[in-house]
Structure formats: C-alpha cells, structure tokens
Design a protein around this nucleic acid. Structure first.
Lengths: 203, 203
DNA sequence: GCACTGAAAACCGATTCGGTCAATAGCATG
DNA sequence: CATGCTATTGACCGAATCGGTTTTCAGTGC
C-alpha cells in the first residue's frame, strides 16, 4: 500500500479512476484486475504489487472516497439554511468531486448496493463508521416557510433527489461531459424551481 | 428458439426478466449464462437448449423489448399535444412496462451503451430499423405558449429528462418497489411543475 | 416394460480469474 | 563499460468460470 502512496499523484489518480470506474460499473466480483490495469495503462502485476489483493484495493477505494468526500464537504459546506442554497452547495460539491474523479459518484452508489459476501461485511463496518457525514447534508433545520403554502415539500425533495440521480447517471455513461455546463444547468434548474415554488417575497 | 416460445408464458417471463436484469446490470460480456439460469431458477443447460447461444438470447431480448415497447406505445399513446399530458402518458407507459418486466428500462439503456464487438453491429442494425418509435415520443408539435413567458423550456425538458432517468435508476436498484406509488409521485411531480410553470389561465 | 421427452448434472476445451515470479529495462553510480 | 538497484512486465500458476455439449435421469403415456 505504501508502494502505491509513494507514486506520483497523477499516476495514483489514473489508477484510482480506473478502479472506481471498473468497480462502479461492474460491481466487486465482476470487475477484474485486468480491467483496471488496462484502463489505468499499467500491467496487471502492478495492481497486485501496489495493493496486494483486489479486496485491499476495493477497501482502499472506499476509504479514499470517504476522505475525499469529507474533505470536499468541509471545504464547501457552510452553514446555509435556505433550501435551494444548500442544494446548490451540494451540487457544487458533487461537481467538483466529479471533476477530480469522474467515476466517484457511481462508485459510491454501487458500494451501497454491493452484495458480494467477500466485502459486504467490511463495507457495512466502514459505512457505519462514516455515518456522520450524512448529518451534514440532511435537510433538517430548513426554513420551509418560504415555500408557497400549497407546495408539498416532501414531493419537492423527491423530485430534487431524482434530478440528482438522473444527472449522475447521465454523466456516468458519458465520460467526456462538460462539468461546468452541467453545473450551470443544475443551478438553473434550482433557480427555476425556487422562482416557481417560493412565495414571491423570497425569490 | 421455438423451444422457448412453446414454454408457458409465466416461465418465459421469468427467464426473460432474469436475462434482462443480468445483461442490463453487467453488460453483454460480463453477464453469464449461469447468472441468468440461476436467477431464472433453471439450469444453465436449459438456457442453451432454449436459445442455442448467449448471443441469440441477447438479440432476442432486444427484439422482444422492441415489440413490447411498440405494443405499449400503440396502446397508450394517443394524440396529445399538451406537454405535461404527454409526459404523463410516457411515464404511464414506462410504469406499465416496468410492472410487466422490471428490468426492461435498464436493459434498454444498457444496449444503448453496449460496446462489445460481438453484438455491437447487430445492435446498430436493429436500432436503425426501429428508429421510427422515437418520432412518437419526441417533443415537437408541443404548444409552448402555455408556459409563462420567462420559462426556459429547454431547461425544463432537461430537468424532466433527469427526473425520468433518476427514478428509472432508483427502481433498477430497488427491485421490490411499489410501482403505483412511483406513478403517483411522478404524476404529482408533473402536476406541481405544470401548476408552477404554466400561465395561470392554463393550469 | 418401453419409448419419449423436458430438465439437470456432469462434462468439455478454452478462457479468465486472482495472484506470483523470473526476467528485463531503465538508470544512477562507480 | 560494469554494476547494482528498482520499477515494470510478460509469462506463468492452479483454480474457477466461461460458452456450449453430452449424458443421465425422472416423469409420463402407452
């Protein structure tokens, strides 16, 4: 593992992204070391030289994602109480995550649904430990009084959630996407909803 | 192939759904006949007994989806020009497709991104032939004058697209989902947007 | 008892799996 | 140029799995 960490950062990232993509799209079992090596432009032997085993690599990726996520959140997530401002922050976090590691979001959702017995226990342990993150993005303490009175806020949140999942799915399939355009679209989306759903004195 | 078609419909569907799921989540190459057989509750030998080869099964599934799609569209898609009414119809079509075959949507999007050389040629040929379907769902001939003047309709369509992708992705991971609840949520979504984005005389 | 049939187990050669290792290429130092 | 060192690799390992075939077998009608 220290073998890997002493590599130049650029090479580390190439390997990480290759592995995130492979595991994210194929799951733990069906992602092979050869796939990862090929995508990273190294030989399969190096994968094991750096990480020792496929499982070690997988667990390292989870840890890496956790750290990356946390760092990004700590950097960008301030104390914002407005619903849409917080949404913009979250989508900003997602976008900059994807700029650094395009496959990170699809990998993160994939570990959530991973069922392979080789790793499921370890995943649960790690996720349980890192549950604190979720608190920071949860939508409590939100000022709902700004919405028009007849708006079903639960529905709005579902809708927002679907939008987020949808654009994550799109970017997973379309690797050469322009993230700045995506960010603009997302923010325009939120602006549109805000203008439409807030009472007029708050838009 | 006629071996398969002379099976009771229920068994056919179980095999079809197993295959749709396997190919949809793992792609052509990484979905194995054993996976499909296990999920369908039959032996691997039967898969080859029914379809002869993995490729034949895959191409049959594409054809099957095309026919199913077309039947569903012909049944439900009338001449509706209102933007949101048409959306509701489309989501209605999607929902009833998923009720019949839960993995059909994820399979359909997966064939769009399939890159395996064994099948890519055949896919292109079939998709080219079936391009006529796309005309029926395209958003031309839509009366855009009902929207408030400051609404960016292109953005609205992107948003709608993301919502659709998002809830398809969700249902792909969550197999025991209640489709009627999903349908209600989707329609409520559209209703909300309609109320918010249309000029008041059209809501 | 016998023939037929639908299904599964066992099996086939080939490929791929996770993982290892000897050999090599590059490169600094003498 | 020789030497040692390190990073990297192609070749290789036994085991598993691949797509696909053959054999076996349980059930059923006669």
């Amino acid at each position: 593992m220290d073998k890997f960490l002493s590599l130049p950062k650029e090479k580390q990232n190439k390997i990480i992204d290759a592995a995130l993509t492979a595991f994210g799209t194929n799951g733990y079992k069906k992602a092979s070391a050869s796939d990862i090596a090929r995508a990273a432009g190294i030989s399969k032997a190096m994968v094991f030289h750096y990480f020792g085993s496929k499982k070690t690599l997988y667990l390292y990726l989870i840890e890496f994602c956790g750290a990356t996520l946390e760092a990004e959140f700590n950097e960008k997530l301030g104390a914002v109480n407005d619903f849409f401002d917080r949404l913009k922050m979250i989508s900003g976090v997602k976008i900059s995550l994807m700029k650094k590691h395009p496959a990170i979001l699809s990998f993160l959702t994939s570990i959530y649904f991973e069922r392979d017995k080789d790793v499921q226990g370890d995943i649960e342990a790690i996720l349980a430990k890192g549950g604190s993150l979720r608190n920071k993005v949860a939508f409590d303490g939100i000022d709902t009084s700004k919405f028009k009175d007849n708006i079903d806020i639960t529905l709005v949140m579902k809708m927002i959630y679907w939008i987020g999942e949808g654009y994550a799915a799109q970017s997973a399939h379309q690797p050469d996407i322009d993230y700045d355009v995506l960010a603009q679209d997302m923010n325009a989306c939120f602006e549109l909803l805000k203008n439409s759903l807030y009472k007029e004195e708050f838009v």
